[in-house]
Amino acid sequence: MEKKTPLRDDEILAGLCSNRKLEEDRALMEMYHTYFGLIKNHVLENSGSPEDAEDIFWVSLEVFWNNVKQEVFTLSSTIKTYFYSICKYKWLEELRRRRRKDDKNNPLEKDHQEIPADIDISGHMMEKEKHEWLWDKIRMLNQKCVDLLTLFYVDNESMNQIAKALDYSGGNAAKSAAYKCRKQLTKLIMEDPDFPS
């Protein structure tokens, strides 16, 4: 039986940016099959558990995916080097968080210096706090609003397709609902004291 050919770096990146679920899933699962073992070894060798490795892998994959979807993203190394750096950074961050909590020595101080200096992660790291702040606002909307806004702004679907999918009477009704939902979300954002004036 013919063995499935692994995806090349450029194919993984193309899949992650395709906006097509099937291709995105294939690229993400390729990342899992190719790199999970590597990340697991790193975490296990640095005071972590298999569960920690799972957490770090998926959190880092989310960061990686977010980064590659940015228009300004350029990969200056291989996926392996870049992704491994993200994972190491995330694991180090987690260990530091635990150390602050436990006030115990952290064995990874040395390891941090092993992250290649030419790989700039900080600039690409997902702005986790900002996103969680935004997600809290999104969670305040009703589910239909979230679906509607996601289909319109994330999936770039047409209003007629959205109307069919979400059971609106037509494109105009969906458009008007999308406008209201967006207004509701921007209002929630603007009314938050943390929103920059």
């Binding site: 996103h131 935004l134 997600w135 999104i138 996601t150 994330v154 921007t186 929103f195």
Partner: peptide, 16 residues
């Protein structure tokens, strides 16, 4: 600016 943040939030929420 708030609209931009909203779309950024929707995109990251969807990925998450």
């Amino acid at each position: 600016k708030a609209g931009e943040l909203a779309v950024e939030g929707l995109k990251s929420f969807h990925l998450h």
